[in-house]
């Protein structure tokens, strides 16, 4: 398949390159989920990936984090070619993925969940310091650190998923639908926290159905449709474009 027409709105703010996805294709058996997705994330940048159900948002994240092997295209991360690399080899290089549906370990305590986030690290002092940082970011988690993660509320579980992903000290945080199933107020809190995370220098690649929220938060956005990028542009520019307003914001 040839390069699809990508409608680009506005100029992109300059960031040093961190992740480059180039024409990545993913198939589940005979079904082609990604037909050649190209996107970039810079150091310190927040990039949102929006689109309808089945557009390939989650598949893109999974290909980036090494949970899916692309059948075509290239992915490079932090200056290295990481096409087809397994997840456990990417985590130590600074990739953290908070999977869809939160993916916390329900029968382990909050503390044990966080410890698993630091699974590949062995610097006890650094882990303890980072643990304190995540407690500062999400005070609720400190209160509940002895509690089973499955007994947390939805918002707290999402906070735990983010905190856990951050404990691997990522350069890039992949977030799959952090607002899924959460009350608007809780979602707002989470996105405020994410701003702090980003301010601390962590790049974020965010998949969201809530286009309004995601584009407001992101520096840059991509619109995915049936496995292809059809539009790209700075978050604010996308928000103002009539196509987006019509298709994703219900106006």
């Amino acid at each position: 398949m040839s390069e699809a027409q990508v409608k680009v709105l506005g100029a992109r703010q300059e960031f040093a390159p961190l992740l480059a996805v180039d024409g990545v294709k993913v198939s589940y058996g005979a079904i082609q989920a990604l037909k050649g997705v190209t996107l970039k994330v810079g150091k310190g940048e927040v990039v949102a990936l929006i689109g309808a159900n089945g557009a390939g948002k989650t598949s893109t994240l999974r290909a980036v984090s090494g949970m899916l092997k692309p059948v075509g295209g290239r992915i490079s991360f932090a200056g290295e070619d990481t096409t087809g690399a397994k997840a456990h080899t990417l985590v130590p290089r600074g990739m953290a993925h908070a999977p869809e549906g939160r993916g916390i370990f329900p029968n382990l305590t909050v503390l044990e969940n966080l410890e698993l986030g630091a699974y590949l690290r062995s610097d006890a002092d650094g882990i303890a310091a980072d643990m304190e940082k995540s407690y500062a970011l999400f005070p609720k988690l400190k209160e509940r650190r002895k509690q089973f993660a499955g007994t947390l509320s939805g918002g707290e579980q999402q906070m735990l998923a983010i905190a856990r992903a951050l404990l691997s000290r990522p350069k890039l945080l992949l977030l799959d639908e952090p607002s899924l199933g959460l009350a608007p107020q809780v979602t707002e809190t989470i996105f405020r926290n994410l701003k702090d995370v980003n301010a601390a220098g962590v790049s974020i690649l965010l998949v969201e159905q809530n286009a309004h929220l995601a584009l407001n938060f992101a520096h840059y956005g991509y619109v995915l449709e049936t496995g292809e990028v059809v539009m790209a542009g700075p978050g604010k520019a996308l928000l103002e474009s009539p196509e987006i307003r019509k298709a994703y914001l219900g106006e």
Partner: peptide, 25 residues
Amino acid sequence: SHGRSLWAIREDEVAAEAMGVNTTG
């Protein structure tokens, strides 16, 4: 930590993989 990885796999294999656990291994 070996046991911790096994627990993680039991609880949620996808999340364990995302944490950097070599699940198949």
